[in-house]
Amino acid sequence: MLELRLVQGSLLKKVLDAIKELVKDANFDCSTTGFSLQAMDSSHVALVSLLLRAEGFEHYRCDRNLSMGMNLDNMAKMLKCSGNDDIITIKADDGSDSVTFMFESPTQDKISDFEMKLMDIDSEHLGIPEAEYHAIIRMPSAEFAKICRDLASIGDTVVISVSKEGVKFSTRGDIGAANVVLRQNTTVDKPEEATIIEMNEPVSLTFALRYMNSFTKATPLSNIVTISLSSELPVVVEYKIAEMGYIRFYLAPKIEE
C-alpha cells in the first residue's frame, strides 16, 4: 500500500513539467526515504535524478519498496486536471497495475480521482559517484535560463569556462558568436540574487544547448540553480525543491575527436 499526500500539489506539476521533455517513460521508485526517479533521455546523453523526501509529504505511507512505471506525458495530462492550490495524494495498492491521483481543493469542496495505468519499464539504475568538482557556480535560475535561451538563438553548443575572471558562456553559429561573462556578485539585496563562483581549478567544457534548455524547464521549482563542473565528469545542473529534495540533471560533455 502506497499513500503519499502532498499539500503543495503544484510542486508535482512543476516536477513533471521539468522532466517530461527529456524523458518519456520512467519508473518512480517509492521507499521509506522518499519518492524518487532516475532516468536517461533516449540517446543516453543526459540523466535526471529526482528526490522528494518522505518528510516533505504531509502523509507518507510506503509499506514496501515499489517501482511504478509511468508515461510522463500521460501523468502530466492527469496532473493538469488538478487545481493549482489542490492537495495531491498518490495512491497505489501492492501489485496493482494502476496508480490513482486524488485532488482535493483547499476548502475540501471538490474531490477528484484520476486513475492511470502503469507500464513495465526496463530501467537501468546507474551509480553516480561522489565527486570533487573543479568549479561550482550558484546563480539565479532565471538568469541561467535566459543565458541558455539567448545563446541557443546563435549556436547549438555552449562552452562553459570557469577561470579567475568568472564564468564565461560562449557559443558560435552561422550568424556570429556570443560570450556572456558572469562575475561573482554577493552584494545583492536578496541571497537568491547572488552569483557565487567556487573554483578549485580552471575548467572549460562544451555542451549541447538543446539539453541545457530542456533542464531550464525546472526553473519554476527554484530561484537558484547550481552548476557543478569537472573535466572528467558530466556537468550537474541542480534545482533544489524547497524542503523536499532536488532535481539534478547530468549532461555528458562534447568531446574533441
Partner: peptide, 14 residues
Amino acid sequence: DAKQGNILSFFKRV
C-alpha cells in the same frame, strides 16, 4: 566537430 559524450561512459550500471 566535437563528438557528443554518453552518460554510460561516465556512470556504471548498478
